[in-house]
Design a binder for these strands. Structure first.
Length: 937
RNA sequence: ACAGAGAUGAUGUAACGGGAAAACAUGCCUGACUUAGAAUCAGGUUUCUGUGGGUUCGAAUCCCACUCUCUGUACCA
């Protein structure tokens, strides 16, 4: 019988769907295991062979865990809000919901044909109102919470109000805005409602704040830093200005320390944890307050080196610093303003990239040293960033290279306060080797002692304190887009009001245009039915807005990461309309046991999700404050692009070998026109685009050879390989095996379709172990010793490999096993049946088919993983390599239970040994039983 | 600049906690079968583990230095 993979795969995919084979129950006698993939954004381009890599790996693991007796949750869904659908809508007027629906259909079809064991009954889509109801709900939860630094957790805002009513805010230690004023209980009672709301907003975990954004007036939108190149928009090259906008922010900074500490408790890759650590950017030091001479002003700086405070010879403020305009003297005014203007024109990225040019201007003002009272000149310089610390630094040129360079450049003095340091060429920045000198009460102390003492003294005189600074900024949560979650928020007297939980979801309104309005409002500003009726509790026409009972709704939408920050928990109970998930469901599934996805989400999705999880933990909704125990990053699959060479100015293409010194344009050719010998199908290429129709081709040896290069797989590089074609030609099992066989999961690796014939013929050889031309050839024959050895060797290796996520090596193990069993002419059911279970996580369709052919009624996924027995691998003898001075010369078969001494004697007695020694006496004989014999001399 | 990962035949890669370097595939070559293509079968094919040094009886593996590649972050005070 022939192996007809197309029929077999369709048959079993249908069987799994109809029987809901992989549906997980929220209770079971079995232990639970939760395997999760990062859900995809359903783009219009569909899947290419790079996308399923992680899904195949997680699917193998999920299927393996089922064989191992676990109740496995392995869900899948779609991160279906996002920019591409919106941009398509702007261009075509097509509603993003429609495009998204179509794209999801394509994705589902493509995923289905690869044979994943997803529990599709739990599918979620972030753009589905039933789903985003709960995204809105979490937003409200965050709004109604504040972070209590004493308890080190989020608490209800109503508790905070109680404290304010009882004693004011003097004793409240909260993560809040910096500009909160101290008030008493009486004062609180006397504030108007709006004033109270304003104060509370400074404490809430999500809050409205003025944020600086990159505003592009021509595009009418806010741009991310990445979207700006050389000060103009990447799209269209329009000018971009910094503009303040009121936007929602998430107080993730409140969780900085816990996000950092939590990394110690999870099994994620070191590089990913390191990325998050850098992103959080903890630095320990002190805040120091400098009084400005002749002004009633103070400058607060953050420093990690308070021990060097006696080395301060100037201060630098960021050009954007609030004080600059106040303290600049009349003489310096023009220079300072010119400098500020020049800096404002440069993007932050430009400023950061340009490290060599030292620039700055003296303000004319002086600060006063907190201890010596000496005057310190105040400069501004663009190497100081407004967004980090306080936007001001105390400059210690002898101990910091940037300060040193700055001082040198502007001829500012460089006092040396480090004992024995040579600062004639560069600063001495090694704090571990620092001994302080010329520094009053800290002379002779090391860095640690001096730091402690300086902080103590600063506190005594009220000029500073110990402080920990984090780089992590609060996350802006507003987007001026259409295709995202609407906020459950309306505005009354300018203050945001949350819509009560029972009226959620607030669904996206219809709009005529998906662009910002002419007045620069976000796309939702185009909606005509987008006002909240606070009595009827429903969305009504804007015409009814009276600001008494009907109020305007929020026009921004939520960012892409909103929907993905709790989806892993929603899978546990995805159809629950009463709660985001039931307590039973979360208590049962707890957290993700294995999460697989790309490393590009290291500081986005993976950080925000940890933040929301910690918040949900504080509120008692979840039992773990980390959502994923173990995380693996799959590497990217790269495409092999093909290039043709067009002679400049002519419509002639030369074959790669003939390019030589010719001036040519290198053009991407679609890889589907190129065969495995790098030869171009010239006719197909000509028909590809009109401009190539009449092109001439200069061939070498009768063919046109293309150039090759490995690049990211992408539609624009024409190097995309579609899994549909692979499945049609070789089958899903071959695709799955080949993707794993390419190399280690975490590694970046190029795709080369030609290699798939190796795994494909392996599958055919597996089939031939079961079938010949006459049909099934399996017998009940007693397995031979060799059969058992092959099987158990394979069980052992495959089990180890899966546990270590080394899927590539188990594929070669399978090949070895099938090669050996074929050579042994094995037909024994007792061997081949367990072999099928081993292979089934990797190649589930053929495994089901053969399993069924052996007379099994249930799906192979219900079978138990075979148990390894050591006894079948025990050997009685070993073919010892005999080395002389480390070089292997010949081998000798010796019993494994032979003693060291006897082995030595036997080896020395061998005539080949004597031949090698040529009469010399060996100095030493190393015998490692079971491994090797090495003769030295 | 810093951090992380990595470098093995023509190619993808393998080698438990030092113990026979290249398993498993791809490619290429020869032969068989076939009208041809595809498929199948039999056989063959290369290297000395990025560079330099160290530890060791023995190093791809451990240590030190360097070179290069990829990824992330970047004037972080």
């Amino acid at each position: 019988m022939k192996y007809n993979f197309n029929d077999i795969e369709a048959k079993w995919q249908k069987y799994w769907a109809e029987n809901q084979t992989f549906k997980a129950e929220n209770h079971s006698e079995k232990p639970k295991y939760y395997v999760l993939d990062m859900f995809p954004y359903p783009s219009g381009a569909g899947l290419h062979v790079g996308h399923p890599l992680g899904y195949i790996a997680s699917d193998i693991y999920a299927r393996y865990k089922r064989h191992k007796g676990f109740n496995v949750l392995h869900p899948q869904g779609y991160d279906s809000f996002g920019l591409p659908a919106e941009q398509y809508a702007i261009q075509t007027g097509q509603h993003p919901a429609i495009t998204t629906e179509q794209n999801i259909k394509t994705y589902r079809r493509q995923l289905d044909q690869i044979g994943f064991s997803f529990d599709w009954s739990r599918e979620v889509r972030t753009s589905d109102p039933k789903y985003y109801k709960w995204t809105q709900w979490i937003f409200i939860q965050l709004f109604n919470s504040w972070y209590n630094n004493e308890a080190n957790k989020a608490e209800a805002i109503s508790e905070l109000v109680k404290i304010f009513e009882a004693e004011g805010n003097a004793n409240v230690n909260a993560a809040c805005d910096d500009d909160v004023e101290i008030f008493t209980a009486e004062a609180w009672a006397n504030f108007s409602e709006v004033e109270q709301q304003e104060i509370l907003l400074k404490y809430r975990l999500t809050y409205l704040a003025e944020t600086e954004v990159n505003w592009c007036p021509a595009l009418g939108t806010v741009l991310a830093n990445d979207e700006i190149v050389n000060g103009v928009s990447e799209r269209g090259g329009h000018p971009v200005v910094r503009k303040k906008m009121t936007q929602w922010s998430m107080r993730i900074s409140a969780y900085a320390e816990r996000l950092l500490q939590g990394l110690e408790t999870i099994d994620w890759t070191d590089s990913l944890k390191e990325s998050q650590r850098n992103w959080i950017g903890k630095s320990v030091g002190a805040s120091v307050v400098f009084n400005v001479k002749d002004y009633n002003a103070k400058i607060e700086v953050f420093t990690t080196r308070p021990d060097t405070i006696f080395g301060v010879s100037f201060m630098t403020l960021a050009p954007e610093h609030d004080l600059v305009s106040q303290i600049t003297t009349a003489e310096q005014k023009d220079a300072v303003e010119a400098y500020i203007e020049a800096t404002a024109k440069r993007s932050e990225r430009d400023r950061m990239a340009d490290v060599k040019n030292i620039s700055g201007v003296f303000t004319g003002a002086y600060a006063e040293h907190p201890f010596t009272k000496e005057p310190i000149p105040i400069w501004i310089g663009d190497y100081v960033l407004a967004s980090y610390g306080t936007g001001a630094v105390m400059a210690v040129p002898c101990g910091d290279q940037r300060d040193y360079d700055f001082a040198r450049h502007f001829d500012i003095s460089i006092p040396n306060i480090i004992e024995g340091a040579d600062i004639s060429e560069e600063a001495f920045a090694d704090k571990e080797k620092t001994i302080i000198a010329n520094s009053d009460f800290i002379n002779g102390m090391n860095y640690k002692k001096a730091t402690k003492r300086v902080i103590y003294e600063l506190e005594q005189i009220g000029q500073g304190k110990g402080k920990i600074n984090y780089r992590l900024r609060d996350a802006v949560f507003s987007r001026q887009r259409y295709w995202g979650e609407p906020f459950p928020v309306y505005y009354k007297n300018g203050m945001p009001q949350m819509i009560a939980d029972e009226h959620l979801p607030i669904t996206l309104p219809e709009v005529e245009k998906y662009l910002p309005t002419e007045t620069g409002e976000p796309p939702l500003g185009n909606a005509t039915v987008w006002a909240w009726h606070s009595i009827e509790n429903r969305v009504v026409s804007n015409e009814l807005i009276d600001n008494e009972t009907v109020f305007p709704l929020e026009l921004n939408t939520m960012p892409g990461w909103a929907g993905s920050s709790q989806y892993f928990n929603r899978y546990m109970d995805p159809h629950n309309d009463e709660a985001i998930f039931s307590k039973e469901a979360i208590d049962y599934w707890q957290q993700v046991d294995l999460y697989i996805g790309g490393s590009e989400h290291a500081t986005g999705h993976l950080l925000y999700s940890r933040f929301w999880q910690k918040f949900m933990f504080d509120k008692g909704y979840v039992g773990h404050d980390e959502f994923a125990k173990k995380l693996i990053n799959q590497g990217m699959i790269l495409g092999t692009s093909a290039f043709v060479y067009r002679i400049e100015g002519e419509n002639k293409f030369v074959s790669k070998g003939l390019v030589g010194d010719l001036k040519v344009q290198t053009i991407h050719a679609d890889v589907s026109f190129v065969n495995s010998s790098d030869e171009l199908d010239v006719e197909a290429f000509k028909n590809w685009r009109v401009e190539f129709k009449d092109a001439e081709f200069i061939l070498e040896d009768g063919v046109y050879k293309v150039g090759r290069d490995v690049e990211k797989m992408s539609k624009s590089k024409f190097n995309v390989v579609n899994p549909d074609n692979i499945c049609a030609q070789y089958g899903a099992d071959s695709l799955r095996l080949y993707e794993m066989f390419l190399g280690p999961l975490e590694q970046y690796k190029p795709w080369n379709t030609a290699g798939i014939t190796g795994v494909h013929s392996f599958i055919k050889r597996l089939w031939k172990l079961f079938y010949n031309d006459n049909g099934l050839k399996i017998t009940d024959a007693e397995p031979t010793k060799d059969n058992l050895k092959t099987l158990h060797k394979t069980i052992k290796k495959v089990e180890e490999d899966i546990e270590n996520f080394s899927f590539n090596t188990s594929v070669s193990t399978f090949m070895i096993a099938v090669n050996e069993l074929t050579a042994q002419k094995c037909t024994s059911k007792a061997i081949l049946e367990p072999l099928l279970i081993l292979i089934s996580p990797y190649a589930p369709h053929i495994a089901e088919e053969l399993w069924n052919a052996l007379g099994n009624e249930d799906s192979i996924s219900t079978a138990s993983f075979p148990i390894f027995e050591e006894k079948h691998l025990v050997e009685s003898s070993k073919n010892y390599p005999i080395s002389f001075n480390g070089k292997m010369r010949f081998t000798m078969e010796l019993p494994l239970d032979m003693s060291k001494n006897d082995i030595e004697k036997a080896v020395l007695a061998n005539e080949k040994t004597q031949e090698q020694l040529q009469g010399r006496t060996p100095k030493k004989v190393i015998v490692v039983p079971g491994k090797i014999v090495n003769i030295v001399g």
